[in-house]
Nucleic acid binder design. Structure first.
Length: 531
RNA sequence: CGCGGAGUAGAGCAGUGGUAGCUCAUCAGGCCCAUAACCUGGAGGUCGGAGUGUUCAAAUCCUCCCUCCGCAACCA
């Protein structure tokens, strides 16, 4: 929290097919961090995008009878739609086919080549002649069969450029040591060292000649730049590195006052944790401050696959249940850093328990009582009339503090729990104070007023803490409390006395209860591949 | 010995040294402001197994074993 600016990214996703809920998970988490930082007054830049080159795109496009560009244009259109639907607040969207990226990547390649960090060598692999594809040892399996067509493969070689990893291994290890927070969870660092670095890191293949849908190498037009040198560099090309307009790059990458964070899934850890710092060092650039590695979402305890009927398309899910329910589920249900699973039952349960029963119902009953007992006007703060008032206030204050500490440390699941503690305590507070009893005794009016004021404050605070997650419900909550969502400031969470005087507006239910007997089968139907 | 993760109440999960927790389900009670919601309490776990391992103290650290899962150079 000591830096002023904040740069946060998702990986750029591969548009060979539609996005699934795993992509939505990653992007939603990133969006929540970005929104939180903005709420806290940081100048924040949030980047996502698409990694559009490669053989798979080339082949899928051909199979669809389209040009690769046409093919990715259509799929990327779907990315934009999904992010809009999920209310993702990215500041930019980079596509690796854009000029601003292509040119700079070519420059980067030239620089590394000139510096001697890239050299021309031979790539050896298993080659399937009919498919015109190279495969790795593990892809072909013990029987040496093409994973695509099932025919036998042959050992083959092609000319390729390689990045000299050995040159940077020592300084990478030193970097890990000097920056213990670079990789989260920390276990990932050990994994990188033990699995990849210790056994001896091979040089990284950074070009291919076996397909052409990629960024051509200026020095040798037969070659296109291969995956990671093309993909990882998006994080800086999007900011205008090496361009005529490097302002954003200077501000959000090179400036030590800016904290730079990559969010990524466990499956691409090594590229981000090993090669990316090496590339940056080769270019003489700063390395990112942190990389947050989240777990992968499994579907019913096995990896997503359509044949198993367990893929979830987030789009219809959001359309039916709303952006808040989906965002909340993703951020709350899966412990950050662990693999998680999506099940329809859990989704419905989480939405009902937390959003409908706890938060939505608390708002509903509070607003109803303020209407009934005080003509719709929230009574002014009355002080702490008794120990129960004091207890609620102290839960609010400690929850705010916990929430901030947790989110500053990017612990999202626990931070949400801290916010919900306020809601749960407030529900209990109603039972303890029994406002409907107080209302019958005119002498208890002040106590009743205090109860209503405290409840409104609890709701406001919880709503503010949850605002990065519940992007629409939080504003609805503020509006029901008679506040203008445009005008409420985060700083008010520290003040338990400021509410009072405004007129509540009882609106629609914040979050309706879902009927599991209807919604669970509905989600299952979606997961079976139906729309 | 490829690497890693997981095994905690009927189900799903938190919990990295200090009296076993949460959600759902279940049982009993309360309340009636509210979205059949809310509040209280009960029952239900020898925390995968083993160890005459470490420690004043272990779900948590150590050793071995069993089971499941993921990754293994373009699935976040």
């Amino acid at each position: 929290m000591d830096k002023k600016r904040f740069y946060i990214t998702t990986p750029i996703y591969y548009p060979s097919a539609k996005l699934h809920i795993g992509h939505a998970y990653c992007t939603t988490l990133t969006d929540i961090f970005a929104r939180y930082k903005r709420l806290r007054g940081f100048e924040c830049y949030f980047l996502t995008g698409a990694d559009e080159h490669g053989q798979k795109i080339e082949k899928n496009a051909a199979a669809a009878g389209k040009s690769p560009q046409q093919f990715v244009d259509e799929i990327v259109e779907g990315f934009h739609k999904l992010w809009k639907l999920l209310d993702i607040s990215n500041d930019d969207f980079i596509r690796t086919t854009q000029d601003r990226h292509v040119k700079v990547v070519q420059d980067i390649f030239s620089k590394m080549l000139a510096k001697g960090d890239i050299y021309l060598g031979k790539y050896k692999g298993w080659y399937c002649t009919p498919c015109e594809s190279f495969w790795t040892d593990t892809q072909v399996g013990p029987d040496h069969i093409c994973p695509d067509c099932g025919r036998p493969v042959q050992v083959a070689e092609e000319e390729a450029y390689f990045f000299k990893t050995q040159k940077y291994v020592d300084s990478l290890l030193k970097f890990y040591e000097e920056n213990p927070k670079f990789l989260t969870p920390e276990s990932r660092k050990n994994e990188m060292i033990n699995t990849f670095i210790k056994p001896g890191l091979d040089d990284l293949c950074v070009s291919r000649t076996s397909f052409s849908w990629g960024i051509p190498i200026r020095e040798n037009e037969k070659h296109v730049i291969y995956v990671w040198l093309d993909a990882l560099t998006n994080y800086i090309t999007a900011l205008g590195y090496d361009s005529e307009h490097p302002e954003l790059f200077n501000k959000f990458w090179q400036d030590p006052e800016c904290e730079t964070i990559h969010i990524l899934g466990a499956d691409i850890t090594r590229f981000h944790a090993i090669y990316w710092p090496m590339f940056l060092e080769s270019l003489g650039l700063r390395k990112p401050d942190r990389e947050l590695i989240h777990g992968l979402l499994m579907m019913r305890n096995s990896k997503m696959s359509k044949s198993k009927g367990n893929v979830v398309d987030p789009y219809p899910l959001v359309e039916r249940f709303g952006v808040d329910a989906v965002r909340y589920y993703l951020a709350r249900e899966v412990t950050f850093g662990q693999d998680g699973s999506f099940t329809p039952e859990q989704f419905v349960e989480r939405s009902n328990t937390d959003l409908a029963n706890a938060l939505g119902n608390l708002l509903n009953r509070t607003v109803s009582m303020i209407n009934k007992y005080f003509g719709g006007v929230i009574p002014a703060y009355q002080g702490r009339l008794n120990s129960v008032d004091g207890e609620l206030e102290s839960v609010i204050q400690t929850s705010v503090k916990q929430y901030e500490n947790l989110l500053d440390d990017l612990k999202i699941t626990e931070a949400i729990t801290a916010a919900m503690d306020i809601v749960n305590r407030a529900n209990k507070y109603i039972d303890e104070t029994t406002p409907w009893v107080l209302a019958k005794d005119p002498e208890k009016e002040k106590e009743l007023a205090s109860v209503m004021n405290h409840l409104a404050t609890a709701l406001f605070t919880a709503g503010m803490l949850l605002k990065p997650v519940l992007v629409t419900a939080s504003d609805k909550l503020f509006a029901q409390l008679g506040l203008n969502p445009e005008e409420v400031s985060y700083e008010k969470v520290y003040d338990v006395t400021f509410l009072g005087g405004q007129t509540v507006n009882k609106g629609e239910q914040l979050s309706p209860r879902l009927d599991a007997t209807i919604e669970v089968p509905f989600i299952q139907y979606l997961m079976a591949g139906n729309q």
